[in-house]
Every structure is written in C-alpha cells, then in structure tokens.
C-alpha cells in the first residue's frame, strides 16, 4: 500500500507533512475509521481517550501507566481491557489486520501508531522526498 503524506498548515504560516494512514480500530462491538500517524518514536499505539468511548471500552483508572514524552514531561495512558483490531485499508489491496493492545491518553495530540504491537508487524518505508509512505 502506498499513501501520500497529509499536509498540515500552522497559524504562523509554516507547515508539516505527516505520514498519516487510514486505520480502522475495532473492538468486539464497535469500530471507528480514522487516520493515524506512523510514529517510530512511540513505544505503543496511543489513541485519544474519546476513542475508548466510541469502541465501548471501559478503562480501569487504577491501571494507568506513566509515559515519558520527548520533551521530558510525563503523561498517563490507560491500557485497553482487550486487544483491538487495527485494520489498515486501501482500495485495491488486501487489508492488513493486526490485533494489539492499545493505550488511551487524555491529552493525546493525535492518533499514534507505535512499535508494540503495530509497527513491529509491518514493513514501512517513509519516503520523505516524495512525501509517501509504503506499508506492507
């Protein structure tokens, strides 16, 4: 599968190109189709906590895990009570279906695809010059 980077404009006139790919997250009862950022700097997939509600997942506040952000600040994530199906899709290609624990953050900046157990199962090539990402 080959995806073009998405473009983000900033208020100061600057911008970034981001390797966002279409991922549908599925629990036993519900699903939500999203765009998620390939993030090699994330140990695990981190989703905004609103998605836990969409998937009908009840989180246990006693199981929160401390994470460290790149700037040194700490934040907390809550593990999903069950593995979630993560389906990467593109028309004309067979979907890639992964099952992984995911983690929910109250202050998530976006939907992040981290190494364990998403990126570890994929072959991803980030072509910055072409602003394309291939996923297999």
């Amino acid at each position: 599968m080959l995806f073009k980077y998405s473009q983000q404009q900033f208020a100061d006139g600057g911008g970034m190109s981001l390797p966002l790919i279409p991922v549908t997250f599925r629990s036993k009862k519900h699903s939500i189709p999203t765009f998620a950022l390939i993030d090699s700097g994330a140990d695990v997939p981190i989703l905004p906590i609103e998605i836990a509600g969409e998937l009908g997942l009840k989180l246990n506040s006693k199981e929160k895990i401390e994470m460290n952000a790149a700037g040194g600040n700490k934040f907390y994530v809550y593990p999903s009570p069950e593995k979630v199906e993560c389906v990467i899709e593109q028309k004309g290609f067979r979907s890639i279906v992964l099952r992984s624990p995911v983690y929910f953050a109250e202050s998530a900046s976006t939907i992040l695809l981290g190494h364990n157990n998403i990126l570890y199962q994929l072959r991803i090539v980030l072509d910055g010059a072409k602003k394309e990402v291939s996923v297999n």
């Binding site: 900033f10 189709p33 999203t34 765009f35 790149a70 900046s109 976006t110």
Partner: peptide, 14 residues
C-alpha cells in the same frame, strides 16, 4: 465512507 482524525495542535515530538 467517512474517516475521523484528530489534528495535532502544532509541532509534535515523541
């Protein structure tokens, strides 16, 4: 046919 995304507030790292 719709898809949802949370747009980052600005630059992100980590």
């Amino acid at each position: 046919e719709l898809r949802f995304a949370l747009v980052p507030r600005g630059h992100i790292a980590g």
